[in-house]
């Protein structure tokens, strides 16, 4: 079927079987391999994307569900030269190790800050508890999200 949607800021009309999993559609058909897969069953949060600004698990969605939606994957977050402040914070605060959880984690964190712009550290932990990370022990991820929230408070987005 034809799917009409916005992907990383650009309107697209693409063909895909209606039951194609969004994760496969992104990775295999569109070459957007920044979205990772780890459990394929909605347990780990690794494949998180933003659909109309809200975090969704792309392994549990079908391509047909993207019709008319605005989809953001990790590839669409940075502008040409500059990292998004959340990405920059993940780099600076050492929140990245193997990096396989990172795309999903960053997008979940953005969803969290949209709903709760000034979360406490506990609220950050709650907000990210659907995204597993096996490397970092989470503390530096919490640091990065906290710092991004604080910066936003001070002025315009970086």
């Amino acid at each position: 079927m034809k799917i009409n949607f916005v992907l990383n800021g650009k309107g697209r009309v693409l063909n895909a079987p209606s039951d194609r999993r969004v994760i496969d559609f992104l990775r295999e058909d569109l070459g957007l391999t920044g979205t990772k897969e780890s459990c394929g069953a909605g347990e780990c949060g690794v494949c998180t994307i933003l659909v109309d600004g809200e975090s969704r698990l792309s392994c549990l969605m079908f391509a047909a569900q993207l019709e008319g939606r605005n989809v953001l994957t990790i590839e669409g977050l940075a502008s040409e030269e500059t990292l998004h402040p959340m990405q920059e914070a993940f780099v600076q605060f050492g929140a990245v190790q193997c990096g396989f959880c990172t795309p999903g984690m960053i997008l979940s964190a953005l969803d969290l800050l949209k709903r709760n712009p000034h979360p406490t550290r506990t609220e950050i932990r709650e907000g990210l508890s659907g995204n597993l990370c096996r490397c970092t022990g989470y503390q530096k991820i919490v640091d990065a999200v906290e710092a991004t929230a604080c910066k936003k408070e001070k002025g315009p987005p970086l």
Partner: peptide
């Protein structure tokens, strides 16, 4: 960390 936060880093799983 730069290529991993932007999704550009290519892991073995990303080869098609």
């Amino acid at each position: 960390a730069y290529s991993k936060t932007t999704g550009q880093e290519r892991y073995a799983a990303d080869y098609y």
